[in-house]
Amino acid sequence: MKIRMQVNGAARELETEPMRRLLDVLREDCGLTGTKEGCGEGECGACTVLIDGKPVNSCLVPVGQVHEAELLTVEGLSDGELLTDVQRALVEHGGAQCGICTPGIAVTAESLIRREKNLDHARIRELLAGNLCRCTGYQRVVEAVAEAAAKRGGAGDE
């Protein structure tokens, strides 16, 4: 099947089996290894990407479903060398330790702060519950996302 999609702002067209996992297509065909596999069953969130702005576990998505869709992976977050507010806050607050869950968290958090105003800790905890982290105990992650959200003025982009 011929799949056309926007990946991190660039148009891509590839010929592949429609039932392949989006995760594998991103990692193997697009060379975007920032998206990680932690469990392969939609539980850990390490493979989170944004499909048309919404966070999704790419290990559960057959690539045939993203035909004509717009994808954002961790590689598409920062503008060149400039980190986003979320990325920067994650580093400064210690929200990334081993880093394997970090791409998924960065992508999810980006979608949150674009979508919602007034993100307090309780709300951030609720919205990040699909991204497992085994290193941080989440405290530094939650603080980082709260700071990034505050920086955006809680106004939301969209």
Partner: peptide, 28 residues
């Protein structure tokens, strides 16, 4: 891009040296 201050001192929360690679997906 991450810090304006000099990060020479101990006891400061300098950005972790592998932090940028980890939040951008570059860490392999």
């Amino acid at each position: 891009a991450m810090t304006n201050s000099t990060i020479r001192d101990l006891d400061k929360a300098v950005p972790r040296v592998d932090g940028a690679d980890k939040v951008t997906g570059k860490a392999l």
